[in-house]
Design a protein around this nucleic acid. Structure first.
Lengths: 376, 376
DNA sequence: TAAGGTTTCACAATCGTTTGTGTAAATTAT
DNA sequence: ATAATTTACACAAACGATTGTGAAACCTTA
């Protein structure tokens, strides 16, 4: 008769889950054999393996990841920190990361900084204490220095930034080519016949907004148009600030005939204000945003916007992490993966009725998608 | 001189993080003292405690959660599974959960079932293997039986369902009063003078859609209106099926003068189709949806919808989990927390210009919010 | 048949904590 | 002053897995 795990007279005793020791006892072999059989080690005979597997299934054995991680010094936990999970962009990126991670046997621990650098620090400590195998992070809006990330490096935990990164430091990162997206969008507005293109920008200490502004400026310059400071407004790009910004622009002696916003919420605000003043979009003012949020296809007219390739960013971020893990010793070489954005031209910027956005061949896109730049 | 952790001739050797053993050695005390000092145990003198704390800070000691969890048999990991993370509802609920969990010292492992019961099973196993302290889950659309959740119960891991639950089983759950939300909305449409109110419903094997339909039927009955099967269409409530459903309804001999959709995407589709046919909203057909997605405030006219109190649901779900943990032995008593939805009346259903939606006092809302039903 | 190789498995240490028990010394009570 | 209690700490055994080392048993080859 098989040995029982519990005395019959103590049925209500807290049951411990079945462990390798239980399997070993039942089968009359050592724990070594169990462990190696389960991990398909070559030194275990096929008959023994079968027996172990069968018993494991029968007793519904679940390996304890914690114990394994403790012993091996490597867990299958992956830390992911975003400013916030709500909103299409980060949710999609996290979706991409989680899907890829799950396939590779990792569990993701998700946390939010709520755009607060203090919370960011706390989360980082927590993740380290949880012995994560790596940390994937998009920094908060209030993060301006790198100091707390040094600790991660000190603990030799692979660290990958995505989208919002700290520049000027040697970091691994996956970013969007924000400059190219902005450049293409601005060029599109100009090609539609607009001559005074305004820009609603975000906080310039963040890489993404800096480069979106730069792309805007570059496009103007390529068309021989001098930048006009009065056409460039900076805010946190909410619907409200979009309205205010648009109002301010309309009050200019020479109001713009197009607006390129670094975010979709702001461009929605601009649209609302234009309508409330009885102006037509795109005839009077053409609009274009950034992020390709769901709302862009719901407004009237629908909004032109730049897609940030959220899912790809998630996948690429996880892939970069695995590369770091595999690289092992040389793990901390610093790489950047640059994803190419895609402009979606919609009615809010289509004056001529002709979509002038440049076609990109699928092959070229595939090439661009995972372009890797190496520093050092 | 202080003892060194590494031989000087092996500087490139992989550094292990500092452990309690290191602190003990450095201070010349036992690990017991270190452990108890760090957890503020009464049997450790204040002077010793200070010394330990100081050294810990100095050496940047990070406790190893895995080891502690292994020893204690209880981790500070919380498993959260949703059908998908994208979209306002689940993202907000997860936000609420994560925020509350983080405050209580838990880390959340997030995973997605992608509406697939097979993936759901896999995720469940993974979470168990990760030794989570509890599992919070909203079941996938394709889940129709309870079997794989039995395993969780067998492992004595607290299990809480939210929003989408399996009924007829003894489970802990946090749900929205979908019936009340639907009832209130339908009643509102009737109060606006509508007489033929159609319903776009979801899969009826899911509790949420079943109750939304029930609320719709109850409101009709209370107004002495006999339900008309030809006015009730069921689908997965996408924009596309919303359009198709609306088209089908308009082709009826007696088309409806209002539509209550169990989801916002479908009502958007309906709106698009009505516009394309030159019909006016709400004059010709009034519209109301469910979920209070962001898009509802962007369309023209804005869409009336039922808010699901996502954040509160997240908080309540976590709170129910902690209650189960504290209840310990009697942990598996089955509770249900029912949250009260809130109807947001917008232009798509306002015919009279008068918002007839019932006012709820803040006090009453507070009361309703955390009403707890006990079974058994 | 002896030397060498391969297959199959057990021993025991180890990862970093926690905690029941034991025991001095210091404090208080009788 | 002795007994009883409290304070402050150490010993050592867990938790559940992994893995280097060693050693039988079996097979191969000369």
């Amino acid at each position: 008769m098989a040995a029982r795990r519990h005395a019959k007279n103590a049925p209500s005793e807290a049951v411990r889950p079945v462990s390798m020791a239980d399997l070993a006892r039942e089968l009359g072999v050592s724990m070594t054999t169990i462990s190696r059989a389960l991990s398909d080690h070559h030194s275990i005979g096929p008959a023994t393996k079968q027996a172990v597997l069968k018993l494991a299934k029968k007793l519904n054995y679940q390996p304890n990841h914690l114990a394994a991680a403790l012993r091996k010094g490597k867990s299958k936990l992956l830390g992911v920190m975003v400013p916030y999970i709500e909103g299409r962009f980060f949710a999609s990126v996290v979706h991409g990361i989680e899907t890829a991670a799950s396939k590779a046997g990792y569990s993701v621990i998700m946390c939010q900084s709520n755009e607060d650098v203090v919370q960011e620090r706390k989360n980082l400590d927590n993740l380290l204490r949880a012995q994560v195998a790596g940390i994937l992070v998009s920094v908060s809006r209030s993060t301006t220095d790198f100091h707390h990330f040094e600790k991660v490096r000190k603990h030799h935990v692979p660290l990958v930034f995505f989208d919002r990164i700290l520049e000027g430091n040697d970091v691994n990162a996956v970013v969007l080519n924000d400059r190219a997206g902005a450049y293409q969008t601005t060029k599109h507005l100009l090609a539609q016949g607009c001559r005074r293109v305004a820009h609603l920008g975000g906080p310039l200490h963040m890489n993404i907004y800096k480069y979106r502004r730069q792309g805007y400026l570059d496009a103007l310059q390529d068309h021989g148009i001098a930048p006009d400071e009065s056409l460039m407004l900076y805010s946190n790009l909410t619907v409200e600030t979009g309205r205010e910004g648009m109002a301010q622009l309309l009050d200019l002696p020479e109001p713009p005939d197009a607006v390129f916003s670094a975010g979709d919420s702001a461009v929605l605000g601009a649209l609302q204000l234009l309508k409330s003043r009885g102006l037509r979009v795109p005839e009077d003012v053409a609009l274009a945003g950034f992020s390709n949020e769901a709302l862009t296809t719901v407004t009237e007219p629908q909004l032109t916007s730049v897609d940030q390739r959220c899912e790809e960013m998630g996948q690429a971020t996880f892939r970069l992490f695995t590369e770091l893990v595999e690289a092992e010793g040389a793990a901390f070489s610093n790489r950047q993966v640059v994803l190419q954005p895609q402009l979606f031209v919609r009615a809010s910027s289509l004056r001529s009725g002709v979509d002038d956005s440049p076609e990109i061949s699928p092959q070229e896109r595939e090439l661009q998608k995972h372009r890797v730049l190496r520093r050092n």
